[in-house]
Every structure is written in C-alpha cells, then in structure tokens.
Simulated assay, not measured.
Amino acid sequence: MNVFRLQTHRRIVLSAVDMEVQEGGGSSSAGTKGEGGDVAGGGEGASGPRDHNNKPSGVIEVERKFSFSEGSEEKLRKAGAVCKEESSFHDVYFDTEEFVLTLADHWLRKREGRWELKCPPASRDRASLVEQYVELQHEADILKQLAAILNVRAGSVDELVRRASCEPFCNFQTDRKTYTLEGGFKIDLDQTDFGFRVGEIELICQKQDDVPEALRKIDALAEKLGFVSKTKIPGKMSAFLKTFREKHYDALVKGGLLTPIT
C-alpha cells in the first residue's frame, strides 16, 4: 500500500510540491521540483561501495527519461541492446515534516533496506531535458551530505533520521527491466505498483567535466531510438505525488489537510 503522511502544518509545503508536479516535475529556478534543482552535491568520487547494479557511490548519473510503450523493447533489441536483468524493489522515501530535503532537491530513500541519497552535482544545465544527479550509497557520504542540509550530526543514517525527525512520506514497488547497449549505456524500463511507467537512458560520469559529452551521447541515442519528448518526463516520485493528489485532492482540501491551489 502506498503511504503519504499528511499533517495540518504541512499545507504550504504540499501545495508547492503539488504545483511543481502538475507542471511536469521538471526544473525550476527556485529548486522546488519533483526531482530537479541546483544545490552543491557531495560524495567521495567513485571509491565507495557498489549497489546491486554494480555502480560506485558518488558518481554522477546522467539520465534522460522517456515514455515507453509495447514497441520500445523491440526498438532496443534492434539497436543491439541486451536485457541483462529483471528485478523488483521497494523504495521508501524519508523527509522532515517541512520537507526540507525534498525542497532542496535531495532524495533520501531506503531501497530494499539500504540507504541511498540522490542529490544534484555542483553544476548542471537547467535547460537540458537530461537529468544529472550524484547518487550516494556509502554511509559516510550520505551522513556528510545530510548533515549539511539538516544541521544534524550522527554516527549512522538511522540515528540521523531519528534525530532529524525524518519519517516515511511515500513508498512504492517498482518492477524493472535493465538493458545495456554498447558505449556504456544502461536503459531501465520501470513499472510501478501505482500504474506509472517510465524509461531511462543512463550514462555514468566519474567527474563533472565528462557530463557535456554524456549529454550529447544520450540525446543522440534518444533521437535514434525515437525516445524523444519535447517536455521533461516526470520521475516516479513526481508521478506518485501527482497520482496521490488526483485521487485524494478534494477530500484532503475538504478535511483541511491541504491548501487549495489557485
């Protein structure tokens, strides 16, 4: 079951998040976005441990989202892509009551019992349809980044979450097919338990200087495969918030738990 915790004193923050999601979950100059922003990132390069996809902690993920259909996998196979893995995982996202992390474009989640933090790199192109994030999985890196945002210090992420009063605000299950393609490309096709489907073309960069070339390569592949959209495709979190609002918006406003958007 998806969970979205609401309390009366969250009204203003929820309205800001909902308005951003309604606009497509893309970038904004204020940094209050579905999954985008411009706050200095962190990490210790590529020296940290790796996740289940064998990806080092602290690297820069450069990815372009796309909407996929029944014919998308056939296009991938014809281009030479190989399905390397099919997996399912459960994400639980955490934040303070004021959504301090979300509004700073920091995404703290527990994926299958392991803490992960996605945050922006030191700089990125706001106009690009390709997203860029630093993904941290090493506990020391996550603690350092969270301490700077929440002004709380602790010896473990579990302790910091308790001390900062961070609590789950949504959770969902994702079924994923992962394809790889020559040139270092990874293409994920995700289907969530709330009915949202999204694909991602991803390249991993070890340093910021490599990002522009990665952006060019991803755009070229998206064009070749026909996975191009003129607008930014929302991420799963943006879609979850939008789905929740559409299903429960009137009842929440009537109950005084959500400020109407005008």
Rank of each mutant, 00 (worst) to 15 (best):
L136N: 11
V152W: 03
P168M: 03
E131A: 14
G58F: 04
H90D: 09
G58K: 05
E70I: 07
P56D: 06
F94P: 12
G58A: 03
I60F: 06
D105M: 01
V100T: 15
V161W: 03
A104I: 00
T102C: 00
R77P: 06
K84R: 14
A154F: 05
G80V: 03
D141G: 09
W115V: 11
G58I: 03
H90L: 09
F89N: 04
F68C: 02
Y133S: 14
L150G: 11
F99N: 10
V62F: 04
A81L: 04
L108F: 07
H138T: 09
V152T: 15
R77N: 02
E131V: 01
H138N: 13
V152L: 01
S156Q: 06
I60N: 07
A127C: 01
C83L: 15
S87M: 05
G155W: 01
E112Y: 00
L117Q: 04
S88W: 00
D105A: 15
K75A: 12
D158P: 10
C119I: 06
E167F: 06
D91R: 04
Y93T: 10
Q132N: 14
E131L: 12
N151K: 15
D141I: 00
L160F: 03
Q137L: 11
V100I: 12
R126E: 12
E86L: 01
E73Q: 15
S69E: 10
H106K: 10
S87G: 05
K65E: 08
S69Y: 12
L103T: 15
L129T: 08
L117R: 03
K110C: 12
A147T: 14
D95R: 11
L146A: 11
L143V: 10
V157N: 07
P168T: 06
L117S: 05
A104E: 13
L150R: 08
R77K: 15
E85Q: 14
S88R: 13
R126F: 09
D105N: 15
R114Q: 13
C166H: 03
E159Q: 13
R162W: 00
